[in-house]
Structures are given as structure tokens and as C-alpha cells.
Design a protein around this nucleic acid. Sequence first.
DNA 1: GGACACGTTGAGAACGGTAACACTCACGAA
DNA 2: TTCGTGAGTGTTACCGTTCTCAACGTGTCC
Lengths: 336, 336
Amino acid sequence: MRDVAKLAGVSHQTVSRVINDHPNVRAETRERVLAAMRSLNYRRNLAARTLATRESRTLGIIGFETTLFGPESMLYGIESAARAAGYLVSVATVRELAHRPVLEAVDRLAQHDVDGIIAIAPKPAVTTALTHAPNGLTCVAVGGAGSGSDPFPTVRVDNAAGARIATQHLLDLGHTTVHHAAGPPDWPEAQARVDGWRETLYAAGAVVPAIRPGWWDAAAGYEQGRRMAADPQVTAVFCANDRIALGVLRALHEAGRRVPEEVSVVGFDDMPDSGYFLPPLTTVHQDFGELGRRALALLLHHMARVDGDAPPSNVVVAPEVVLRSSTAPHRLFARG
Amino acid sequence: MRDVAKLAGVSHQTVSRVINDHPNVRAETRERVLAAMRSLNYRRNLAARTLATRESRTLGIIGFETTLFGPESMLYGIESAARAAGYLVSVATVRELAHRPVLEAVDRLAQHDVDGIIAIAPKPAVTTALTHAPNGLTCVAVGGAGSGSDPFPTVRVDNAAGARIATQHLLDLGHTTVHHAAGPPDWPEAQARVDGWRETLYAAGAVVPAIRPGWWDAAAGYEQGRRMAADPQVTAVFCANDRIALGVLRALHEAGRRVPEEVSVVGFDDMPDSGYFLPPLTTVHQDFGELGRRALALLLHHMARVDGDAPPSNVVVAPEVVLRSSTAPHRLFARG
DNA sequence: GGACACGTTGAGAACGGTAACACTCACGAA
DNA sequence: TTCGTGAGTGTTACCGTTCTCAACGTGTCC
């Protein structure tokens, strides 16, 4: 910077003003400085800037160290939006969604002077840990069920609504009731899907079958699918996500129960290849990229208003059902 | 830091020495400083340190803004290894694997003073762009085919070997030849798989069927699968990845060609749920987590030896075939 | 014509560390 | 005794920005 100042025949302060678009610089001077910057290929040193301003133009993301589809796709949404806003994104992953690892992740990010944090927070342990973030560090949580009483801004998909439309879709096809291949019971998102499913059955006066929770993967879905395949009463299954649905489809196939002729199956997520399952999966679409962008927008918004204690806003994104070939009218219904 | 020094009754320099584990500090003094640090809850300011040392303890990753399975899983491997080594990881994604976007990504990371870069570089454009990285910025490329003449260290899976074992596996089952559902032609990894497949057929004296390249997803696989399903000569298909295999499986199923009884199918990647396809997919396993860890180790290694111009090492990881239910002996072979 | 506001610029002090060097002191060898 | 040596510590400069404040025109108003 000193060299630029010398070449342009001004003080380093004036150079700084040009860099930061200060209004009070004569057009001609600005031009001279810009020319000098170009000719010296000058690049402002961010570390020095951070030291002086306590602002690093870096954002932190706390992620979960597992290849779940959602979290991964969000990263891109967040990163490209952050780039557009002039921020770099740093990632800290936790091996386990517990209090202590999350605190450590926050700490790691804070040490590197991030200006704000987006935490992928599918479980409450993450949110509570975030409460202990250093003062002045803005946090946004994305995911989870959203109790409405969260201490900070939140972005999430309306899981219950997604479950409702999925279940209702199956009821509308004439199925007397809908079984549910549930996700892990200690994940609020899984619980919200259970709730939406159950509500819809209640409202329709349908029997509510028992659920046996599992994990988010195809192996768990396969287990559940085997049980369901053995029960001839089962004609419609709503799965907590697409991977579970994949396992359910395999189990049904192995048991000789045809989808969708005998059993209808609906998933959740709409992963890129769900349209190529056997049969192509009807599912509830979540726009994770959009979720990431919204989370970033919310974070920047809250970072900006340092003055007022604006109430933590909560953004809820509505999912929608994608119709493919894994659902069909109930056989009795069709006949009758 | 000044406060700590005052409280401990030493100079700030001594505090600095304690932080950096300098040997020449009396044990008692060190203890006093540590106590002061604890009582003041002191945290060293990384921006200041970066400014003084030009070392940020941050690593950059250049990724591809698309939900391809491999790149995503690597991120976790890299991040957790980086954490163990005391580094934070920053991510810069590119929308397109072209020269310019990659240069911009490098630039963004350089501006934030990263100490080194791992680039997920499946296409040569990335590697060549990396050549223009600022001097002194160590880069490691992971992925691609590895020409052996790369200007910097490289980590990759031996794609040709993977293709060979997959193809050989099918030949060993008695198939007279093996068809290939290829990936994008301008991706060296896809090309290496083509090469491995072709070599193996040559060596066995088998006919080499024509290939029609596509993209990496199930939709492309479905297209290719439809063509193959229509050709009764096709009894064995080696797919460039699991997602393509998923599309091929669907196409074969729709055409009424049973897998594996009539047609055998092999994938590549071994995604988490490939074992739950219909039928469970025999595939070539790539350990992406390991790949990420290796890339990081290589990067740190090259960052350390600033002195000598060590030749760029190239790490090649061997893939292995995972046998499941999508392959079976050729029907004629079995009969005869 | 002098007081005053305002646009423009510069000098110097932060910001919080590390690097280089000087200094003190105890110890052992010449 | 005298000097060199090395461990332990303090002093000062420096990393590259931004911030604060003062200074300098220049035009405007009374």
C-alpha cells in the first residue's frame, strides 16, 4: 500500500479511502490511485484489515460429518451466495451432534475471527451449544423442527406440512391408511414428519399404525420394509426420506409385492436420482440450495442490524410433492 | 496480551514465547503466564499473528458446485484431518470447471491468506489454472487421471485399474464381451475407465463395443440403458459410476430384461446406498474419505519442505471391487 | 474582508501479535 | 581474574490496514 501511495503521490490514507470507496476523494486523485494499484498489481491484505476492523469477511459453517444428502447440498447454496456477498466460507464439521463438539467447532471458527456462523442444526444439542457462542457473534441455525422459541434466527423446511401432503396424497388415492417408515426418533425433523403424518391420519379418521424408528439410510429402510412387506394390510408407505424409501422398495420387491400396483410408496427429499428408482419415486421435494441461500440472507441481515435487538426471525420454506410412478390408487378403491 | 503480560509481571514477548512453546522460558515463569492467561481467558488473535508471520493456519479447498458424490465425501476427510493438524478449512466452489472460475477461486483463497490449497481437479482446466497460483502457495490436486507430468503433487484413484477389475470380473463370469455406459468424454477419470475397460477386452480378445458418452447421472444412464436393453447381444454392462448404473438398471427393468439373470451390471464408486439398488449393485469401491486424508497429508508435507524442490509426489489409491447381486454367470456359459 | 462550512488530504496512532536484537546473570574455562 | 557462552528476559521495530484528528484550500455568507 505504501508503494501505491508513493507511486500515486498521495498518502497511504488516501489509498485506503479509494479502496473503501470513501466519497471525499477527488475524481482525479482516485483515478491516479487506481492506476497505481493496477500497475503494481496491488491486493489489499485482509489480515491487516481484520486486525484493524475486527471484521474478517469470512463466515463459518458448522456441519455434520456424515454424508446425509441435505446438509451437503446446502453448502453450495450458502457458499455461492456468500461469494456474491463478498464473503469466504470456512467449514467446521462435528463428528457427533452433541454439545461439546459443537462448542469446539464454534470456538475454532471464533478463533479465526469469522463474522457470523450458520449452523446446520438438525438436533437441539446444536442449538443450545450455539447459545454459548461468544458475544457479538451472530448465529443462524438451519434445519431442525423449530420450536418457535429459538434464541436466534432459524431457517427450515416445514417438515410437518411435507408429511401432511404426502400422507394426504396417499389417502386421496383411496388407501384406508398409510404406514410410516420413520427416521431417527431423536431428530426433530423426523419427529415433525411423524407428527404431520399422524395428524393427517387422525383428521381422516384412519387407523394410525405403529412406527418403528430407524436411521436415515437404505439399510434402515430395508429393515422396516421387510416388516411391512410381510403384512398384507400394508398398501401405502410414507418414508421419512428417499434413502429409506430405496430400502423399502427393495424389501417390497424381494417379497414379491409390486409397487405401485399393490403398495404405494412416497419418499422425502427428492434426491437427484430418485426419479430413477424402481419405480421412479413419488416424493416430497426440499430445495436445499434455496434453504442455504435463505440462511445466508438471514445471517447477513442479522449481522447488519447491530443496533436494535430485532426478534429472531424464523424462515420456513414450504416443500412440495413431486408425483412420479411409485404411487397408484388402492386396488379395492380402483375396483369399487 | 498486554494485560496478560502485566498480570504475570513479564513482557509481552515472554507471553508470546509461552504461547509458542519456546524452550527458553523458565518453568516457573511459564506457569505464571499460563495462570494469567487462564484467569483473563486470553485467546491469541489469529489475524495479528497472520499479519506478522504471513501464516494463517487456514487451508483452502476448491470444489465443484454440483452434487457429485465423490467430491462431497472428500470434504469431510480433508476437514477432519485438517482439524487434527490445527488448520481451518475454507471452501471456494466453482460453477464450472474452467480456467477462469478456478483462477478466481484461487484468488479468493489467496486473498484470505490460505497457507495451501487442495483442488478437486477432475478436469485438466483446473490443474492448468492452478499453475498460475501466486508463488509460494502450495497446491495439491486430487482427482483426474494424472498424466505423470503434473506440475504439482496429486492424489487420485487408479481409475483404469478399477475399470480393469470390473471388466475382468464380468469376463470371468463367461460374458463374451462387456458393454460400457461411459461418463463424460472430457473428464479424464471417465476416459481412464474407458481405457481400462478397453484394454481388458483387447487382452481377452473380446469385441470392443461402441460407447456413447453421457453425463454422470442416472438420467444419462437411463438413456444408455435403453439402447443396450434393445440389443439382445448385451449381457454385461460396466457403468462409469453408480448413478449411471441406477439409470441402466431402470432401463433394463422396463425392457423386461432381468438383472443379473439376463444382464450383469457393475458400477463404480460404491455410494452408501448402492447395496440397496434393485438388485444390490456390484461395484468398484473408492474410499473418498481416505483420498481426502491423503491429499491433506501430501499438502502438509509439501508445505513443510520449503527448502528443497522435492519432485511432486503422486499418490495413487487402489480401488477394489465389491461383489453384490447385480452380476451372474453368462447364461450360455452357465448352461455349457 | 473575515468567519465559517465543507471537501480534500496527510500525519500519527492504533490493532495484537512476532522477529531481531540487546541485555543480564550464572557458570565454567583459560 | 577475565572472558566467552547460553539461558532467560525485555526493548524496539515491524506486519499492512483503518481510525482519529488536524491542516489546508476554496467558496459562501454576512
